Amino acid sequence: MWIEKRDKDNYKFVEQYKDPLTGKTKRVSLTLEKNTAHTRKQAQATLEAKIRQRLQHIKDGTLKHGITLKQLSEEWLRNYHALVKYHTYDNAKSRTNKIVTDIGKDVLVEKVKPVLLEDYLNSLIYEQNYKNSSVMKFKGTLGNMFRYAYKHDYIKSNPISEVEVNYRSEEATEKASQKFLDDVELKQVLDYMYKRSPHYGRFCEFLYLTGMRYGEAASLYRSDIHKQADGKTVATVNSTLVNGQKQASPKTSSSRRDVTLNARAQLIVKQELIDHPFKSNFIFESKQGHPLGNVVLNFWLRKAKAELNIKKTLSLHTFRHTHISKLAELGVPLYLIQNRVGHKDAETTKDIYLHVTKKAEQKLDSKLNLL
């Protein structure tokens, strides 16, 4: 580093470095008012940071030592935050915090071997009783973190690429038939929720009738319900809820859509607007004028599951899956169902569709002998 005198009480501190991409020498500089031992030390540190910043995306094969799992997680999360929606980031942050806590914040990234990660993921299944689907997400988060580490020369290779998780074969993902309600179960659950509160019952029934996600339905404004030129009444899905706050865009780009409301869904909307004061723009609002919360609704659904002795999964999302199953039962093509529920390509939708259509085929086969 050298110093150039500029004006009175004005000094330019300069450092140079070699650009690996061009082989040419480049400079970074910093202007300070004083030239003292303290400012020289300060300038040196600042200039070195500037050089590191400029070279951070240049992979020259030189391994950077001493990066801990905690440091990697924080750096990766800052980068990841700018690339995805908040809900996706928030879930990744939660998994990352658990990974760092479980494995160890001071573990050096360059020392992590595939066997360590494999043992950890297996322990999530067999010791901490996580589902296969959850552990797959942990593996994905680890893969993203270590892919970032590889690109930034913290490791020589991504250890997750050699990891083979011993997933529970008996689970093999939850059976499609357990994800939606049949007609009898649906009536029982809706009756239960209507008895708890007509407000709760209408919201759950609206989810079933539209196939919307909780956040999509709860964030609907009165202005989102309108009649189109062809006479159809639709709900325009253009938002969701994140931590109770309306977010301008829904979960994915394919989630932006107009959902046709049948007569019953339209009646539910009208009844909500009649029964609740105009404290907010939300259709389904709490007494305080906030969007209807999912915590209390899922609490009562858990109570319904126990009291009605329903063996299937039961949450607000179950109504969405039940909507998909009913459309499949009615013979609606898969691509139209995907468009309606905002699933561009979702395995769950396909699994439910195939399960229902397969069941319909079996019913047909059993009746062929009656011809």
Rank of each mutant, 00 (worst) to 15 (best):
K195L: 08
D191Y: 05
D182W: 12
D224T: 03
Y194Q: 07
R222G: 15
K175S: 11
G211C: 05
Q228K: 14
V163N: 05
S219L: 00
V189W: 03
V234G: 08
K175C: 03
T233Y: 03
H199K: 15
N166G: 11
V165A: 04
Y200R: 01
S177R: 14
E185F: 06
D191F: 06
D183K: 15
A218D: 03
G211E: 01
S169F: 04
E170R: 12
R196K: 15
H226V: 07
T210W: 02
Y214W: 15
R196Y: 11
I225P: 06
T210V: 06
H226E: 13
R222N: 12
Y192R: 03
R222D: 08
P159T: 05
L186I: 14
L181N: 01
I160F: 07
A176H: 01
K227D: 04
E164P: 01
Y194I: 09
A176N: 01
E174N: 10
I160R: 10
R222T: 12
Y214L: 02
Y208F: 15
E162D: 14
G201K: 11
E164F: 07
K179E: 07
S177F: 09
K187Q: 13
T236K: 06
G215T: 02
S161D: 12
T236R: 13
K232V: 13
E205Y: 07
L190N: 08
D230K: 11
Q188L: 15
P198D: 03
R202K: 10
N166R: 12
P198M: 07
L186H: 11
T173M: 05
E170L: 11
K227R: 15
Y214N: 04
S161C: 07
V189E: 01
E162R: 14
K156A: 14
S197E: 03
Y194M: 10
E185W: 09
S223R: 11
S197F: 01
G231E: 10
V184M: 09
R202E: 06
R168Q: 13
I155D: 09
